[in-house]
Design a protein around this nucleic acid. Structure first.
Lengths: 120, 120
DNA sequence: ACCTATTTGTCCGTATGTATG
DNA sequence: CCATACATACGGACAAATAGG
């Protein structure tokens, strides 16, 4: 299988799985347009529950990394102009911040808070 | 209870709950800083499962409408309107960047180019 | 400093629904 | 029509953070 989970008890299972899959995609182990294993299959092969895998899949889908559709499975998103999207988002953020008179450092700090992940 | 769900089978339960709670907050039925009922309590009083309520809570937390912390409960976020918008934009940018596997420093550099305090 | 109750977090399990191919 | 695979919802158990006494 293309994901190997080295036990890390500091992070929940589904987050480890998210990281592993994201890594596999970034490394090119799975290419855009390719399908990920069915949640149940991956769950079984990893010795975990279907829900745990589905939760990871859903999070990746929220991020736009994969597309999740009923009956079809999880497909890695094809994005031709990825960087352009990020730049557009950055510009929008900058504009908004300026509109509210926020200092540059403040925005950078804000972004840093959002970057690591979703620990709460 | 402050939420009443009129059965709507076109939308899943947890989405109806999200809408109901968001509405309650907008209407001022629950004010910023106030705590929402414990997920399990609300679930019981609405005749639904804990997980369904927790899922709604988690979605609201992702939107930044409430803060969800273990052992403390779900507290309505108190925050000026503008800052919430900026935070949403920052979150979106962070998600996008993560989706593309961009390093944090890379994003920060990108944003710095677009940020206030720089003459164009 | 300690203990306890509260409350969310995670994970497992099961069942049924529903879009896709 | 049928198999596949995610979507939703229910239930239970234990872990972990928080708050209060």
């Amino acid at each position: 299988m293309f994901v190997v989970l080295h036990p890390d008890h500091r992070n929940p299972l589904y987050l480890q799985l998210v990281a592993a899959i994201r890594g596999a995609i970034v490394r090119g182990d799975v290419t855009p347009g390719e399908r990920l294993p069915a949640a149940r299959d991956l769950a079984e092969s990893l010795g975990m529950n279907m829900h745990t895998v589905l939760r990871a899949y859903r999070m990746l889908a929220d991020e736009g990394v994969i597309e999740l559709r009923r009956g079809r499975g999880a497909v890695v998103t094809r994005r031709p102009e990825g960087r352009a999207q990020v730049e557009a988002a950055a510009r929008e953020l900058a504009d908004l911040a300026r509109a509210h008179g926020m200092a540059r450092e403040e925005v950078l700090a804000l972004l840093a808070d959002e970057s690591p992940g979703r620990s709460r």
